[in-house]
Design a binder for these strands. Structure first.
Length: 336
DNA sequence: AAAGTCTGCAACCGCTTTCTT
DNA sequence: CAAGAAAGCGGTTGCAGACTT
């Protein structure tokens, strides 16, 4: 036998809550706790379904709910988590204290999603909407240095790579600094710092292909936040991650692994191998998500990241796929 | 100023998962 | 173990206020 019905739906009020109802619900929960949602409406003197009460409490009345505009950091966290989790709003909300899944879902649909679309990014895949532009001809560009890029195809969307490389090479002839930021300059064939150290066999986490690259700072943060995941994956394959920021600790359970970095002191072994390896049967993504997100860490001198401060203007460019300007010398007709 | 349109968000709906009996 | 309700969750809707014409 199951339980008895939660409530008699006849005669129950629906629609917007009144102040009086809010007060009743709040006072009751503060006094008794939510307890059983089925019996709560009756006990609290409300003509509502328990489900409606639960929703009203969890989405609106709960005292720990943070109201008001989402901060820059919150937006960035949402985008990053969404690139990994998709529409798992409750999982995303679990990482944003004071925000409800409903609130995040609404914010995504009304703000972030539109902005991504406006900037040519598919909000589902977090990749450029290349259906808007035929890039096939770029493959044949004489300026493309394929040997330098060979390793990168496992890391970034190939189409993005092609476009970015062309633009980078085009801008390199310009004295102006037309910075191209895409996955930490991975797309720049002149950059030998990080990508050259990755073997072709190394598959990056899916979310690393997401290039919601925004302004320089958020780009740096994005890269830093993904660094643990990338490094752990390399470690799992017994490959020394050579791009470890100063004071950045990477963990691995593998005793076979021997730190070979020049900065070996920053490398420690522990128990994250299975935790960060999605191919491992014991992998539990929730456990990864439940760990505190590492704060952005400045890279050491061997890295090529550029620091900059966040400004209001930066916010305006937030979520733009590429932080670069098309050089004046760039001819679109040639490009096509 | 009025009418029409757009936007943001609270609340609901319906499906799935978890829990209780 | 099975049945069925509660709880959880994501998608959708409806409405109020803002904005545009």
């Amino acid at each position: 036998m199951g339980r008895s019905p939660c409530c008699d739906k006849n005669g129950l009020k629906k629609g917007p809550w009144t102040q009086e109802e809010d007060l009743k619900l709040t006072e009751y929960i503060q006094l008794h706790g939510p307890g059983n949602w089925r019996t709560l409406p009756k006990n609290a003197g409300l003509q509502r379904c328990g489900k409606s009460c639960r929703l009203r409490w969890t989405n609106y009345l709960r005292p720990d709910i943070k109201r008001g505009r989402f901060s820059f950091e919150e937006e960035e966290t949402i985008i990053q988590l969404h690139s990994v989790l998709g529409n798992k709003w409750s999982s995303i909300a679990a990482r944003l204290p004071g925000r409800t899944d409903n609130e995040i879902k609404n914010y995504w649909n009304t703000h972030i999603r539109k902005r991504l679309l406006r900037n040519g990014i598919d909000p589902v895949t977090h990749t450029p909407r290349l259906d808007l532009m035929d890039l096939s001809s770029i493959l044949n560009s004489a300026q493309l240095n394929l040997s330098n890029l060979l390793n990168l195809h496992t890391l970034v969307n190939p189409d993005v790579l092609r476009l970015a490389t062309l633009l980078a090479s085009s801008s390199s002839s310009n004295n102006e600094s037309n910075e191209l930021f895409l996955n930490n300059q991975l797309i720049n064939p002149m950059n030998q710092t990080f990508n050259q150290q990755l073997p072709i066999s190394t598959s990056m986490p899916t979310n690393f292909q997401t290039t919601q690259l925004l302004n320089q700072q958020s780009h740096n943060e994005y890269f830093s936040n993904n660094l643990d995941n990338m490094n752990c994956q390399l470690i799992n394959e017994n490959i020394m991650p050579t791009c470890i920021p100063e004071n950045h600790v990477v963990h691995s359970q593998s005793d076979q692994f021997k730190a070979q970095s020049s900065d070996t002191s920053s490398f420690q072994t522990s128990d994250i191998e299975t935790k960060y390896n999605p191919t491992n049967q014991n992998f539990n993504f929730d456990s990864v998500l439940s760990t505190p997100m590492s704060s952005p860490t400045p890279l050491n001198s061997s890295s090529t990241l550029v620091n900059s401060s966040s400004t209001d203007d930066d916010r305006e460019t937030y979520c733009s796929m590429f932080k670069f300007e098309i050089p004046e010398s760039f001819e679109f007709e040639d490009f096509m």
